[in-house]
Design a protein around this nucleic acid. Structure first.
Lengths: 201, 201, 201, 201
DNA sequence: CAATAATCGAGACGGTACGTCTTGTCTTGGC
DNA sequence: GCCAAGACAAGACGTACCGTCTCGATTATTG
């Protein structure tokens, strides 16, 4: 999210004082803490500045607003998210992955994620950053599981992959956003089982 | 949503000037317009007051904040939402219902709905109002379709109804909130088909 | 300086909550104190708000910036400034008036006045407010003394009144702004004596 | 105004890269332009740096702040200011000098001068720099005219020289700072005439 | 000719005030 | 008692400028 002015010519040394990595890290760390403690909306830029020891001007220099900082902070703390299990069984892969997602959803970061998705409804930038930074990666993993399952003959080759992925992930996100039902391991397993087996007799 | 102070003693005539129904209606109408024109977040209480000709004090007297007004306005404009088709086929019922939901999602009100769900991530009251005013009604309709299908032997009796409903609705809401794929009639039909038939060969 | 929306129709009662006189007075009082304690430049709007208990928004509603507040506060504390002595002698009148002005200049308010004149060099509004609120009144008093002196035959009728007034007041303001020499009673008397008698033998 | 670290040991050659005279001149020139174009207050250090091509760090190395630079720039452009006319008549000398001062006041540099005097009300350093760099020189010239006039018997030896000078210069500065009346040649002549002849009949 | 020392341009940074905006409460007089 | 008008306190927002700092590059004297 932060502007990366060195991206174009990474090898060339740019003139002037370089950006302080320490300041960047302090901002991200402070933001992470605040997100978990008081949430996205209650968190203010001033609080980030105060807790990180980085001035507001510097924060606004590198991020357009607190939501951009929040996304950076959020993404940096879920780097090792949803690894591809690849057990040899699509059903088991889907189950393990969705259980991981549900753990994430029900944990402290899940609240933050839900709030970011919520904020994305009002802010196109937040939406696209979330897309690029998290959604696509997760869908790619699911896509890999799907393709392997099709190749192994476990899954229907005539089903659109996007529909299949939505059938796995959709119910979980629905429960996260609406909160009408739980998201434990059993629920995750049941969702996968039912999606794979189908609703009809 | 609005506080109803006359509800307790409906027969008894209360002293003083009664609440102006005209004012209530004007507020709701103005809010509806604003929701579609500029969205939930950009809309301010002051704008509602200005457009409706109702003072801010009166608005705050009957609603706790602009989100409560928004929910009232939103619910009042989608009264005849998602009627139970009851065609005799669960698959056809699900398809028709989901297509209706998708029409709603992709229309102007869909944006408002997504924003309300978004706001619900930050405000417990918004969440519960949405639950009571819309989510439960829609789930009840789906539940009726499900129960009839099970009774007719079309659907698996061993599947939890909540899971089944989430499998139908979840993918649609997922697409609404994330926006990575479309929500046309064909997509709705495919979602229902795939959920009913299952992903495995 | 403050916007006076009732000025047009003072008798007519305007709708809505009337402006709080208490808030206005608290702002003016707090500003007066701050002007004397830390000066015009160091004083911040936030400090005025904090000390007066009036919110920043309210201050900005009635005054365009802190300089406008400062002028209001300054003028309100020097209302009974420079009364016309009218002793029957122009020389004595001028001396008494200029001594009063010098007392004012050398006192705590004199610093504030000098700073306002200083600020007027950067802000046309401050300049015109000072003109209207103070300079003109003082010049009018001097003009009255001058006219009486001319009528009594004490002063030269062929001298332009503005030049005469500038010859009395100019040296005092010069000393206030540049600070190269004192402004005690003796200095005031000497300035008047010399201006009246002239420099030539 | 600029810090001169070589002044102590002018003969001794100091090691290291010497100060760039080119940079100094560019800063002064850029500052002069900015003073006339946008004024003392609106001018920022950043603008001086950008226009001169000299870095902010270098500017702050040699001057404590933008006001010090402004005084340097201002003084450097009015070097040949107010030469002593010495015509043999004090009245004529005073008139010529004051007309020169009024030309200066009404010109573009006069605005800058007024702003510097204005700023001096808030900043003791600006005040003393102006004193030393301009005020004293001008008063010295006036003092010379005065002393010659007294020696020639044209002027009253019993009048304090400072009072006399203030009587000549004060009205002009008063008009510059307050702006209530013009400062053309006729006004300058009238001020001198009236001061010399006196106000009384 | 290398080592040393001071300068310079570029630009990031902490601090701080600014003036704006929105929220929800309150205070009038009119109905 | 309800209502329109609108003043008010609280406090977050994003911008601007100040003066300091940290880089690498440059330019002089000294050994």
């Amino acid at each position: 999210m932060a502007v990366d002015r060195t991206a174009e010519v990474p090898a060339r040394v740019r003139p002037g004082r370089p950006r302080s990595e320490q300041a960047r890290a302090a901002v991200v760390r402070a933001t992470s803490e605040l997100l978990h403690e008081i949430g996205l909306r209650a968190m203010t830029t001033e609080q980030i500045a105060a807790r990180s020891g980085v001035s507001k001007a510097t924060i606004y220099k590198w991020w357009p607003n607190k939501y951009a900082v929040a996304i950076d902070a959020f993404l940096s703390e879920i780097l090792a998210d949803s690894p591809d299990p690849d057990t040899g069984s699509a059903r088991r892969d889907f189950t393990l992955l969705l259980q991981g997602v549900c753990h994430f959803y029900t944990g402290s970061s899940g609240q933050v994620f839900a709030q970011l998705i919520g904020e994305a409804q009002f802010d196109r930038d937040v939406a696209s950053e979330l897309q690029d930074g998290l959604i696509q990666a997760r869908r790619a993993t699911l896509r890999a599981i799907w393709d392997r399952g099709v190749a192994r003959g476990e899954l229907r080759p005539d089903v659109d992959a996007d529909i299949a992925i939505d059938l796995i992930i959709g119910p979980a996100l629905y429960r996260l956003m609406i909160g009408h039902a739980g998201l434990d391991d059993a629920a995750a397993a049941t969702i996968v089982d039912t999606a794979i087996r189908g609703l009809s007799v």
